[in-house]
């Protein structure tokens, strides 16, 4: 995973709440067996509308998505995170994220930042009025900065450390091989097995 420290970029203001993962990447894209090439599927249905914010040239090349509450609800598809990253997004800001989506994003180095609804509104107004405005998402200082905005955000220390260092979870867990083996040695025999090996 790529490390995330701080990022500055322009914004796509997405004034919608309850953006589910079926909207972020529709099911027919899920037939792919790779982690890349999902950018054209991002918000596919909404992008048919020329007025849709992602289609506006003023927002092209933006790297920070600012969305309404309950972003990423629904399916557990990690493809939603890959689609956002493949398109070029580095961070998503919302007042609330669905749990699985948030977990998936942090595991892939896409920073999801929770800010109060008023701050989200402020960022929308700023970037709708002037799409060239840049926003800085600073994980080191745990702050989002924009003209007139200096908003602190929270992220649990462990997740933050993994992101800052770009650490791979599996290698970290494999350091615990002894504890896992010890746990396995004490599992009750009545636990189910799918096959005898």
């Amino acid at each position: 995973m790529e490390a995330f420290t701080t990022h500055t970029g322009r914004v796509v203001p997405l004034r919608r709440s309850n953006v589910d993962t079926d909207q972020i990447i529709p099911a027919h894209w899920l037939k792919k067996v790779t982690r890349d090439g999902f950018e054209d599927g991002l918000f596919e249905a909404w992008r048919k509308d020329p007025e849709f914010v992602l289609n506006q040239p003023a927002h092209s090349g933006a790297t920070v998505l600012v969305a309404g509450s309950d972003f990423g609800t629904g399916s557990s598809r990690e493809h939603a995170v890959w689609a956002l990253q493949n398109y070029g997004f580095k961070a998503v800001i919302s007042s609330r994220f669905a749990d699985i989506f948030r977990g998936n994003s942090l595991k892939n180095g896409l920073l999801t930042v929770v800010l109060p609804p008023e701050t989200v509104e402020r960022l929308w107004e700023l970037t709708e009025a002037d799409p060239t405005v840049e926003v800085t998402v600073d994980l080191v200082e745990r702050k989002v900065l924009a003209p007139g905005v200096d908003a602190a955000f929270e992220l649990d220390e462990n997740a933050r450390w993994r992101l800052l260092e770009g650490l791979d979870d599996i290698s970290l867990t494999l350091r615990e091989a002894d504890s896992i083996a010890e746990y396995e040695a004490n599992r009750p025999v009545h636990k189910p097995r799918t096959q005898t090996v």
Binding site: G103, D169, I180
Partner: peptide, 30 residues
């Protein structure tokens, strides 16, 4: 798969995970 919650009907702690976590469980069972 998010609807893994179904299995909780038996008093199991059952939850959906993303693909990175699928890989993690395959490799470590944790």
């Amino acid at each position: 798969d998010s609807h893994t919650s179904t299995h909780g009907a038996f008093g199991a702690l059952a939850f959906g995970i993303g693909t990175s976590q699928v890989e993690h469980v395959l490799a470590t069972q944790t």
